[in-house]
Write a protein that binds this DNA or RNA. Structure first.
Lengths: 131, 131
DNA sequence: TATTATTTTAATAATGGTTCTCAATTAGCT
DNA sequence: AGCTAATTGAGAACCATTATTAAAATAATA
């Protein structure tokens, strides 16, 4: 396994992921990190996002619409996708609840359940106000 | 809104989705339906899969690896993705449990939660046997 | 500090999944 | 049958992501 060598670009990507509450796409990360590294290439962003995901320092979230999103919060938590505005928000469900769901699922299932990710759908509060 | 007109291709796609327990990709649907309609084009498959999804007669499942998958079972249910073999399986969690999770989530959330989809991860029984 | 080895980068080409375009066909009226 | 709108097949176009490669950056060693 190749050893990991420091890079300022990767550090910047990780820092951005950890400080934003949004769930940016690779392209959004690219545009942000570009402010510090004008020459950074999109490939570098993808490479590092995948690397961070692989070593457990980021999470990749797939939604039915559009490209994958990335999250620097790695503790188990869930997400909400607004059907109207398309924003992806954090949704708190305490650890205990998540584990209960996993356990409940395990009851009717042969294999080994290690984790789960629930994506909730509906209308966010902002969109409700506007309608 | 455009009205819906019957097409044998769409019927065949829907029939295949409803009779398989797998969760095929668009390309797998394409290859299957091709046996009845040798000239069908991949675009037609995509168009109809999206149409069926829009009118609630199919579900689109996004996973972190590879393309979207489609499911003809539209009642709320969940899925399991095996980290080893990559198979996507149905996972039963009764309606009551699903609603309980949605309700639990709603407690700490401002917006309106209409539905949810949980994807479980782990190792399926077949892969466990082999190891 | 200078040298060397290995990783990472930037740029860009290539890929794969999905959507779009459009002329020809078909379904559902009257 | 004739008209209109929806659907199709074919292929181009699109977009997100991955792969390639020579040059630059980093880490290890002397």
């Amino acid at each position: 396994m190749a050893s990991l060598k420091y890079s300022r670009q990767r550090e910047s990507i990780k820092h951005f992921l950890m400080t934003t509450r949004e769930h940016p796409t690779a392209d959004e990360v690219f545009m942000q990190v570009k402010q510090d590294f004008p020459n950074i290439s999109l490939g570098t962003v993808y490479r590092n996002l995948n690397l961070l995901t692989d070593i457990g320092e980021a999470i990749k979230i797939s939604t039915p619409d559009g490209g994958d999103r990335f999250d620097g919060r790695t503790e188990p938590h869930n997400h909400f996708l607004c059907k109207k505005c398309g924003r992806l928000l954090d949704l708190e469900l305490d650890m205990k609840s998540i584990e209960e769901v996993n356990q409940l699922a395990a009851e009717n299932f042969d294999g080994l359940i290690e984790s789960s990710a629930t994506l909730f759908y509906g209308e966010c509060s902002d969109c409700i106000k506007k309608s």
